[in-house]
């Protein structure tokens, strides 16, 4: 067993020079500008709703997110979002559009298995853990905030 671990370590070192690293700096730059642009579009939609419809700063978030989600789902359906994501990486994964894409893509993928068992069961395949850990961490943070506000 020890010999095996040794030869594996040796192999890992040996192939290092052959391995292509992810272009991290380039990826960061792309994620920054694409992610920023998505947020800029979101801000534009928000301003538009506030100016032309009867929304306040508190109520405008809902329709803005809904619009972004709709755009993202359409782009996913037309097969464009994954191409944007290959370029942008985290830039298109982090905003709410990435969440919408994860659900829409899973739904499309499992369409062949039917409405209930296919789409219904698999839609949260990727997004499920975001929701689980989002809710759980929100609960913990909420408790901390409450504790602070209580003692201070």
């Amino acid at each position: 067993m020890k010999k095996e671990t040794e030869s594996r370590e040796k192999y890992k070192q040996k192939i290092q020079s052959f391995q292509v690293k992810r272009p991290v700096i380039q990826n960061c730059f792309r994620a920054f500008w694409v992610g920023g642009t998505i947020c800029l579009i979101g801000q534009g939609i928000e301003n538009f709703y506030m100016k032309f419809f009867d929304f306040t700063k508190d109520t405008v978030a809902g329709p803005t997110v809904a619009t972004l989600v709709l755009i993202s789902v359409l782009l996913t359906g037309f097969g464009v979002y994954d191409k944007i994501a290959q370029y942008a990486g985290a830039g298109s994964a982090v905003p709410v559009t990435g969440f919408a894409n994860s659900m829409a893509s899973a739904a499309i993928e499992h369409r062949s298995e039917g409405l209930v068992l296919g789409i219904g069961m698999n839609m949260f395949q990727l997004a499920g853990s975001v929701i689980v850990f989002g809710v759980a961490s929100a609960y913990v943070l909420g408790l901390i905030r409450y504790a602070f506000s209580y003692f201070m």
């Binding site: 979002y81 994501a85 290959q86 994964a93 829409a104 893509s105 899973a106 499309i108 990727l126």
Partner: peptide, 9 residues
């Protein structure tokens, strides 16, 4: 991942 899922390879 699903084909249309936006994950960078």
């Amino acid at each position: 991942n699903p084909t249309e899922y936006g994950a960078q390879k």
